[in-house]
Design a binder for these strands. Structure first.
Lengths: 207, 207
DNA sequence: CCACGTTTTCGACCCTTAGGCGAAAACTGG
DNA sequence: CCAGTTTTCGCCTAAGGGTCGAAAACGTGG
């Protein structure tokens, strides 16, 4: 989600939402406030720190140190945004202001890897979904196709997916009705990768 | 590595090295400068951003937003440090200033997980090492014992370990001389965990 | 110099998890 | 009732980690 800058520097160019840090808030409270002020995005399903961007010349004319965040919104939600704000497909972005291109690139990398070893999919998916819908979400987020069969089995085996019992009606072309699922837990859960470092008894990493 | 604060606030308490951001440097250049100024640590084998700590009251009396870093030094190096600075075992830390306890905790978690799915061990290990020495390093960093057999095979299979051909002399109690190894590449290399999200052809994540 | 304790190394076997394929199931439309 | 579609499920294979125990290579003490 980008909005078009009104003022210099980089007027009229698309940029990530953000703003200055207030005296009584930390950076996460700040970015949530910025989003709530400038655009109507209250349904953030996940927010996490990405990185600090602090190159001296990243904003012409003044020194700005930015803490970039990765924020996710479920796919079923289409927040109303002001006229200067719009959603863009991450594969076809317009020219962006400052170093925002690099921030977006880093954000996408973070999303891709966290989709692999966490249940972060819950933040992208609606409350209920079919496996094929989830497959499309994952494919879009990752940038390459994933197998629906595998996705279901892997997520199930990790205990992240549970059936609701309901089914979704088939499409116009027919087909077997798809079973509906939901994510087992809200909030992030990490499935620790690799076992070299797994304690002999099977405890998790750094309790 | 901690040093004892000379001035208020939190005088005489142990704290992480750090300092203000200069006008002509980014945060990474800054932390490297701080380390070079205050203590003689030029052999940093790895430096990465950890997180921003920005709670309004984290430093009493003034507003300080800190970008925390994780920095590693190979185990064979014992940098000379000023009299107010000392290395502490991470399992037996003294009382620390501000929120540095939380920073250290986060750093250790990051180190533990990156040891699992990257070759970050290269930053902890000396140029040459035996498998048992590496095993002790990993065990210490992770906080629980790891199997030497497994460690060798896993790292070898990932192509991270290569034999030097030499052997280390046995200890005072005798024993078979241990073969010496080195890490195949300096610089961080990520072995992407889990394969659900691996493209059908085997391409890596986000080229 | 030979038996013994020590440390390292290597191989064998098992288990868990992912990837792929194809058949069966369940539905629509004609 | 039949053809076409979409989903689901089971089976098989491959890869990676976990464990165990035997063999290799060394020092030491009798």
């Amino acid at each position: 989600m980008l909005w078009q800058r009104a003022r210099e520097p980089h007027a009229h160019r698309w940029s990530l939402p953000g703003g200055g840090l207030g005296a009584e808030e930390d950076v996460e409270a700040s970015i949530r406030r910025q989003l709530a002020e400038k655009v109507d995005v209250r349904q953030l399903s996940h927010v996490e720190q990405l990185a600090v961007f602090s190159a001296p010349g990243r904003v012409p004319g003044m020194r700005v140190v930015a803490t970039a965040f990765l924020g996710l919104v479920p796919s079923d939600i289409d927040p109303v945004v002001p006229s200067d704000t719009a959603w863009h497909p991450v594969d076809a972005l317009p020219a962006t202001a400052f170093d925002h291109q690099a921030i977006i690139h880093k954000a996408r990398g973070r999303l891709a890897s966290k989709l692999s070893y966490t249940n972060l999919g819950f933040a992208l998916a609606p409350p209920q979904f079919t496996i094929s819908a989830l497959r499309e979400l994952y494919s879009a987020a990752l940038g390459y196709p994933v197998s629906a069969t595998n996705l279901q089995r892997v997520l199930s085996r990790r205990g992240l997916l549970e059936p609701t019992g309901d089914t979704a009606p088939p499409g116009p072309a027919g087909g077997r009705p798809a079973a509906l699922f939901r994510f087992a837990s809200r909030g992030m859960r990490v499935t620790d990768p690799f076992a070299v470092l797994r304690p002999p008894t099977g405890r998790s990493v750094v309790p």
